[in-house]
Design a protein around this nucleic acid. Structure first.
Ligand SMILES: [Zn+2]
Ligand SMILES: [Zn+2]
Ligand SMILES: [Zn+2]
Ligand SMILES: [Zn+2]
Lengths: 182, 182
DNA sequence: GGCTAGTTTGAGAATCATTCTCATGTCAAA
DNA sequence: TTTGACATGAGAATGATTCTCAAACTAGCC
């Protein structure tokens, strides 16, 4: 079956929402794309994987950057506004393969996503609330990083484990949950 | 309907498998239960939650102890031998509520389970293989623990986060995966 | 301008680890 | 033995995540 019309009406604009009838992920944003260094970096990483930095993907990156902590799919969709779940997951996978986004595990059943450290620019760890699942970023001291590197070396020596990275989660209760009852 | 016979045959033993017709999770193991200190501890913790330390649960605890690293459901079932999935998950939840078992997140989609540190007796961290998902235990140095405590204090001061515990994962490649191709 | 090839999108279906249901088996105490 | 409470397990249900595929879009060529 061919449900596609040969001559689709040019500008249907249903429901009086101008511009909503066409995909809004045009790649050719004339010049503003290269302005922000983060976007330039993301575009480069996507290009390495032969992927386009579409408007929707840029919106997702901006939402992740503005949220400032690992966001669930729900939080991301809410921040972006209009964003189908299937597209959200697929683009997160694309951005993940490109090294732009990384997945963060908390204590609840929801996956969270944040900009990769190579993109956001600062190495950090996480504090996760065992009560509500909130995850916030936690900066790391030089002393801690040295001790971590030392531990990584020991593990490599003892178990032949080639340690390339580390993830630290401080588990406790967030300010909001601490105020509420047990 | 009452499918139960008033006078069930005493020892049906179907299919010639002696003893398989009755549940083999009798709680009243005359005396051997209190022998091992670990089992005594587990029994106590379960009793606090008004749960019984059945034979099957003991088998699961022994399997987790013998595996010596966070085990997936599949690994646990294989180690126990006969163990329905629903029972495995339910008992892991019961043991988790009792503080006997804790859930460990790796890099793959499978949850892993190990004896809680209060039961196994030693605080430790994990090294996870980003290629195959294997998780092994990693001992921690006093220096690292001090740096971790320091970080926890800083996070509490900065964000009002009440840090109660920490989890460290060293991510890399296990010996087996390092031998194989990229 | 239009035409073609390749990519992105999104609604819905499918996947699958995990959880739930409930009939039945078992224990403990009266 | 009876009663009440708990444990088991086969199968159904759940739900976050992934997959499918037709339609919408862009880029490059004519
Ligand atoms: Zn909280
Ligand atoms: Zn973070
Ligand atoms: Zn491996
Ligand atoms: Zn462990």
């Amino acid at each position: 079956m061919g449900p596609k019309e040969w001559f689709p009406e040019l500008h249907p604009e249903p429901d009086g929402e101008p511009g909503r009838h066409r995909y809004d992920w045009a790649v050719t944003e004339p010049r503003s794309l290269a302005d922000e260094p983060i976007h330039r970096d993301v575009a480069l990483r996507l290009a390495r994987n032969e992927q386009r930095y579409t408007r929707q993907r840029r919106t997702m990156v901006e939402a992740l950057a503005s949220i400032g902590r690992p966001a669930t799919i729900g939080e991301l969709i809410e921040a972006v506004g209009e964003l189908p779940i299937s597209t959200a997951y697929r683009n997160l996978a694309v951005l993940g393969d490109a090294g732009v986004v990384r997945r963060v595990n908390g204590t609840d059943e929801f996956a969270r996503f944040e900009l990769a450290e190579e993109v956001s620019g600062h190495h950090h760890h996480h504090a996760v609330c065992s009560s509500c699942g909130l995850v916030i970023d936690a900066t790391s001291s030089a002393r801690l990083e040295m001790a971590l590197a030392e531990t990584a070396r020991a593990i490599a020596a003892e178990n032949g484990f080639d340690v390339a990275d580390h993830r630290l989660e401080l588990v406790g209760r967030c300010l909001s949950c601490a105020r509420t009852a047990t």
